Simulated assay, not measured.
Amino acid sequence: MPELLSISELRAGYGEAVVLPKMSLQLAEGQVLALLGRNGTGKTTLINSIVGVTRRFGGSVALAGHDVTRMRPDQRARAGIGWVPQERNIFRSLTVEENMTAVAQPGPWTVERIYEMFPRLKERRKNFGNQLSGGEQQMLAIGRALTLNPKVLLLDEPTEGLAPIIVDELLLALGKITRGGGICSIIVEQNARKILGLADRAVILERGAIVHDAPSAALKDDAATLEKFLGVSGGTAH
């Protein structure tokens, strides 16, 4: 069985600038990958390249054995790439329910199932996107991505700027989502400790290249690597 997501020697960036010189990465079904690294190391560029919004200089991206390299971002979304960008990009002039039904594709993730995962969204289902709190907007962004019924879920800094209680709620939901079967996920997160407890595997980027790839549990106990590449000192996250 092929890997669910396979990136092979991908060379990508913006304009004339190459940010990812030769990226190869594979993910299996049910795998949660923590994508770590200091600012400017290529994490968001990798996510954007899987989505198809960067300039590709070479290499390929395959989803469930099908090459999606030449597909437009909207085609990749329909093929099974769900994306929650840092900006969330929800439709602010649509209601919570309209945000999800506007992009929904058939599959196990229905609007009702999203409401079970995030009861707060059900309570606010008639509210417009611009009437939601930051945490509610993030829940909606994740819910909307799930109604596409993706094979791969990409989350770029999903807990940034949110209250700790909302962060805990979101991370708990993300664990349930990926382990529900049929998908894998990549989560970009600044707080290494928080995400390592959720992920199975951790990859650290430096200058657009993978410098560390290990089970999350191993990295969590590797103080030297955390300090060297992430600036996490004394075994605690910042």
Rank of each mutant, 00 (worst) to 15 (best):
4 L>F: 07
4 L>A: 13
9 E>S: 12
11 R>A: 10
11 R>C: 13
14 Y>H: 09
21 P>I: 05
25 L>R: 01
26 Q>I: 01
29 E>A: 04
35 L>H: 04
37 G>S: 07
39 N>H: 08
46 L>Y: 07
46 L>C: 08
47 I>F: 02
47 I>N: 01
52 G>L: 14
55 R>S: 14
64 A>H: 04
65 G>Q: 07
75 Q>Y: 05
83 W>G: 00
84 V>G: 10
86 Q>W: 01
86 Q>P: 03
96 V>K: 06
100 M>N: 03
101 T>M: 02
103 V>P: 01
105 Q>K: 12
110 T>Y: 00
114 I>E: 13
114 I>N: 11
119 P>R: 04
121 L>T: 03
131 Q>M: 14
137 Q>H: 10
142 I>L: 05
144 R>P: 02
145 A>D: 08
146 L>G: 03
148 L>T: 15
151 K>S: 12
155 L>W: 06
155 L>F: 13
156 D>F: 09
158 P>F: 02
162 L>M: 14
164 P>R: 11
166 I>S: 08
167 V>R: 10
168 D>L: 08
169 E>M: 12
172 L>W: 11
173 A>R: 09
178 T>V: 15
183 I>E: 01
191 N>I: 08
202 A>T: 04
203 V>A: 14
204 I>T: 09
206 E>Q: 15
220 K>I: 03
234 G>W: 11
